[in-house]
Amino acid sequence: MVEDRTWGNRIFGAVNMLLLTLIALVTLLPFIHVLAGSLTTAAEMSAKKFILFPTTISLDAYAYIFSTNTILRAMLISIGVTVGGTFISMFLSSLMAYGLSRRDLDGRRTIMFMVVFTMLFNGGMIPTFLVVKELGLIDNYMALILPVAINAFNLIILRSFFQNLPEGLEESAKIDGCNDFGILFRIVLPLSMPALATISLFYAVTYWNTYIHAILYLNDSTMYPMQVVLRQIVILATGMSNESGAFDADYIAPPEQTIKMAVIVVATVPILLVYPFLQKYFAKGALLGSIKG
């Protein structure tokens, strides 16, 4: 009987491995297709509908995208907004989450109700724009950060994680003369690295992909982040816009589909490079932060 169970476990494990491998390949194929399509030639792109391994490597699409310093400037802007916005969001979210995790805080339930309420209802685009305008943040990079500085979902996960920490640690710190800020920055945050890494990744992806806020609050095209500039490149490549001043008028653009794939690669790869460094924290932080609320 033990031997039968052992063989059954082996067969079950082999089937699981096969299915998971197939699912991983199906998930990975679109990324390979996009990368290969961005590196192929115009003739091959026209001849084939689905490309995984280009026969001839061509960098024409990337040469078109990087034909001026516009994309480099936009990438630096996106990196600055992402890094600065993530730092501000984590600082504010950590302070608020820690305060709401304290059971001795008066009005804690009322504040949490207002936080959860914003997940269901919000002021909308026009009221938010009016607030940003009255604050004098038009054509200011802070307009891309402050309206989304604290995300209610991320705040709830972080608060739940803080609540799961042993209360004895805070009590011991108070006995040693540590104040609330000392407890937060010296004890709570160092013990919350999985949650902090996970929430930081959530915020970083949000800021990296910022688009609609840049369209609404930035009138100066030289301040556009990468997502907006990449969209303009696609529009120029498809001939839908006459605003071609940012690119060489004598430059022959590669096929539209190749440019679209190259744009996807340029917009996706930088943020994907962050995942390997945070992968070991990601699942643990998301799960532990959702055990109880």
Rank of each mutant, 00 (worst) to 15 (best):
W7C: 00
V116S: 03
S221H: 10
A204C: 06
T21G: 15
L158T: 13
F181A: 11
G107T: 06
L236P: 00
V34I: 14
D60H: 08
L120T: 15
M45V: 03
K284I: 13
A42K: 13
A14K: 12
I51G: 03
R5Y: 08
P225Q: 11
L130R: 06
T210K: 05
A204F: 03
T56E: 14
T206E: 14
L169F: 15
P225S: 11
M226S: 09
R10A: 12
M96L: 15
L76H: 06
L288Y: 07
V81R: 02
G84W: 11
I264P: 00
G85H: 03
I233S: 04
F121R: 02
S93L: 09
G177P: 00
V15E: 01
F247I: 15
L105I: 15
F282V: 04
V265H: 08
M17Y: 14
N151W: 10
A42H: 03
D4T: 14
A143R: 12
F66Y: 12
M119H: 08
A36M: 05
Y217R: 01
P254D: 07
T40D: 01
P54L: 14
L18G: 15
M75P: 00
S244N: 15
L169M: 15
S241R: 01
G289C: 06
I183F: 03
Q279I: 10
V274S: 07
T118A: 10
I65Q: 04
D180C: 00
A267V: 07
L137V: 05
V132K: 05
S46W: 08
I252A: 07
L22N: 01
A253N: 07
G239Q: 07
Y275D: 11
G13D: 12
E167S: 13
T210S: 10
R231T: 11
S241F: 09
I88R: 08
L273A: 13
A286P: 02
L288G: 10
G84D: 01
L19Q: 05
A197L: 13
L29T: 13
L105D: 00
F117G: 06
L184C: 02
A14E: 02
T41G: 03
S241P: 00
I150C: 01
R5M: 11
F282Y: 15
Y224K: 11
P127A: 02
I199F: 06
G168Y: 08
N242Y: 14
V266N: 07
A262R: 08
F277T: 03
Y281E: 08
N179R: 03
A214E: 04
F66C: 04
E256S: 05
R159S: 08
E170H: 02
A97D: 11
R186W: 07
S94D: 11
R231Q: 15
L19K: 01
S290I: 02
G107Y: 13
L144Y: 08
N9D: 12
Y224F: 14
K48L: 12
Q257M: 12
F50N: 10
S221F: 06
E256I: 09
D60F: 06
G8R: 14
F12I: 12
M240P: 00
A42E: 06
I175P: 05
F181M: 14
G168A: 10
